[in-house]
Amino acid sequence: MQNWQPTTTSEARIARAAMLRLIRDFFYTRSVLEVDTPLLSAGTVTDEHLEAFETPFHFSSTGEPVRLFLQTSPEYAMKRLLCAQSGSIYQICKAFRHEGEGRWHNPEFTMLEWYRIDFDHFALMNEVDELLQLVLNTQAGKQISYQRAFIEYLDVDPLNTCDEVLVDIMSKENIDIHAPETLSFDSKLQLLFSYCIEPKIGQQRPCFVYNFPASQAALAKINEDDPRVADRFEVYFKGVELANGFNELSAAQEQRNRFQQDNEKRQQAELATKPIDENFLCALEAGLPSCAGVALGIDRLLMLKIGAQHIQEVINFPVSRA
């Protein structure tokens, strides 16, 4: 059966337009430049748990057929602009992830991503907080370290524990999964965080969780004072993961090493390795100015704004009707 109708109401569409205008105003008054980068890219993310859509391109100027990837976020391209002295920039664009649908997930979604020159992740958390106060009329957010959150809600120090302890906690919390011991250490932490911490934090006002374990650094700098953690933060509100930000790693060689380690993990997990974005690494070699950046899910933000229960209420044609 064909489903041609949108899954949104007219009110939701109007709310989206109004919210985007508010966000653009926010950045305009702060002199952050709106930019536009391609959705298609020759390189892609190497992250073990992120899959990009890919497509063949038959008209490359080299004469050879090439693979192109739909971006999972505009991060690499935006950092190339930063390396080219763009100054602080933001973008509202589509991002794509080759994964399932759910209440909070659609494989194609809208992302707001921005970078602030000479901000660290704490300064950027404050700016995210101001944006949320403007868009959602929230109170000022609460900040808690990843370590403190685990100690407070699960009575375990995530920076000083082992797999066996985490498996025990999972069983105590009635997380029933086949062969939990075969999950990676970080997957165990993430599962515990999703099930036991996320629902409890940020219910009244946004919660900023910062200083993630270094093993989950992604593209963040390792903390100068405590190398066990990375300068990475996430924002949670009403049980939703809303944004992810970094004090951006600028060292090209370290970035290359992380990509290679990712690909090694992919091989161990019997997943195809991914082509590293050489343009991005070249740009880092030219020099990324000190900056912090964050990506925020616009569809989820709109869900919170209008009280939607499912992402389909804010996306006109979700993937099942695409």
Binding site: H49, E101, G102, R103, Q190, L191, S194, Q216
Partner: peptide
């Protein structure tokens, strides 16, 4: 059925 996927982590179905 709920799809659980931390932005930077493994996906689960709860």
């Amino acid at each position: 059925n709920e799809y659980v996927k931390p932005g930077k982590g493994q996906a689960f179905n709860r």
